[in-house]
Amino acid sequence: MSPGGWIFMLASNGFVLGLLVFCFFKVLAKPRTAGRLHAPSTTDTGDEGT
């Protein structure tokens, strides 16, 4: 394979793989949002002080 072929293959695959790793790293790096889509309920039950 010519140097041009290597460059296009490695650049294309490298770009896509890099983007994929970056995205999944950011998604999975935050366990709260990676595992659960919605934040836990913060409903004020009004129990405090009763």
């Binding site: 695959n13 896509v16 793989l17 983007l19 994929l20 970056f22 998604v27």
Partner: peptide, 14 residues
């Protein structure tokens, strides 16, 4: 949205 697109590109290009 970007992650879903990147996943699609991984299956297609890589």
């Amino acid at each position: 949205g970007l992650t879903a697109s990147a996943t699609n590109e991984f299956f297609e290009v890589c």
